[in-house]
Design a protein around this nucleic acid. Sequence first.
DNA 1: CACAAAGTGGAAGCGTTTTTCAACTTGAGA
DNA 2: TCTCAAGTTGAAAAACGCTTCCACTTTGTG
Lengths: 223, 223
Amino acid sequence: MTERPLRRDAERNRQRLLEAARELMARDGLGVPYEAIARAAGSGMGTLYRRFPQRQDLVDALFAEHVEAVAALARQALRADDPWTGLTWFMERQFELEADDRGLSELLRGARQGTDRLAQGCARIAELAAQLIERAVRAGRLPSHVVPGDLETVHLMVGAVMDASRQHDPARWRRALAVSLAGLRHAEPTRPREEEEADTHPRKAPVPPASPNGEHAHHVPAP
Amino acid sequence: MTERPLRRDAERNRQRLLEAARELMARDGLGVPYEAIARAAGSGMGTLYRRFPQRQDLVDALFAEHVEAVAALARQALRADDPWTGLTWFMERQFELEADDRGLSELLRGARQGTDRLAQGCARIAELAAQLIERAVRAGRLPSHVVPGDLETVHLMVGAVMDASRQHDPARWRRALAVSLAGLRHAEPTRPREEEEADTHPRKAPVPPASPNGEHAHHVPAP
DNA sequence: CACAAAGTGGAAGCGTTTTTCAACTTGAGA
DNA sequence: TCTCAAGTTGAAAAACGCTTCCACTTTGTG
């Protein structure tokens, strides 16, 4: 199992490839073409493939420490005196990192599957985030119906705003985060499952009054 | 400019193409390959291209009435006795439609540019939605710092959750909507622009206690 | 029926990205 | 210095989707 070290020139090329990938993925996301990375590094595609046969290998090498940094943020947030402050602080810091790095943003949002370092890192973050939620709930700073899954939802929501506005208005995600977090504190509990019976009931009358003009409800084309 | 009617067989093919596109776009989104549509309709790609040279033409023909239906929802919501109820009712109905139709969902979320029917329809919806917001603000049912743009933000947010969970948990968007709407009502006003000076101030101390290693006093164990 | 116009199908050409490969280069140990 | 395994390269092939094109078929009218 001795991993003999790379030849000197090979190691240098590897570093160049990593740097190029780092920059491009931060700007354009994880899906940046291999060819673009190789060109930016001044190498051929063959070299890139030799070092990182799977894109996952490249992503792994690049983002391991970033993911670890986010986990560290979460751990620090868990030490905050006030659980709610800790939670909001964590979310803000996390999104600040994501705002500067589209690759990281995609990584943290996409559901990880592999057994690699990254997947474990993300799992650890999820666990810590769950603790942040639970701690805030226990302290009475969040309603008890808020669950860890709601944080993932918030992550999706704010991330979408970030994606849509990265060019146009890079700070817009802060508003989305403020709305989402306020929403967590004030949302009504989700209605318990009555969906099944709902269909047997007469469909809930449209909340707005049955049209002042006396027309009937507008026809909505069936999907 | 007399548009002579299509030959009988051509018209029949056109309908088949529309049906196929309808179904595929509802399931897979607006980007479904032309080839798949043609195959599903039992036609060749040439026929599809002859009738709908631009994808936009196809989308136009397919979604005009759906967009109009959403606008109608908004108009109806504006007639609700209670502005807040009208707003939430509208959002729920709108997303219910989107939940059943991925194409519509993409359409309403993507920024429209063209001068075609759809673009105008979307613009009309945006206008009506803005009125819904303003009406709720005037009635004191929403804080005055909430602006029409916030509704677009909510649209992005809930839409992202819908996209991520359409397979796994198709009703999850309802939770996202509840959180978002509650957030609109309870969010703090976004801080006025002091960003410029912020950098001159000592960077706001991390909210959790400043000790990364901190075995200092303020460690509050939460059992 | 005959025939011109309308309509059709699907292969070919193009562009993009992934992945492989065989010929060529180079570092470093003997 | 010599040698060869490690390393490199870029072209080529495969996969995918868009778009065009033209030989062929169908319609409906005279």
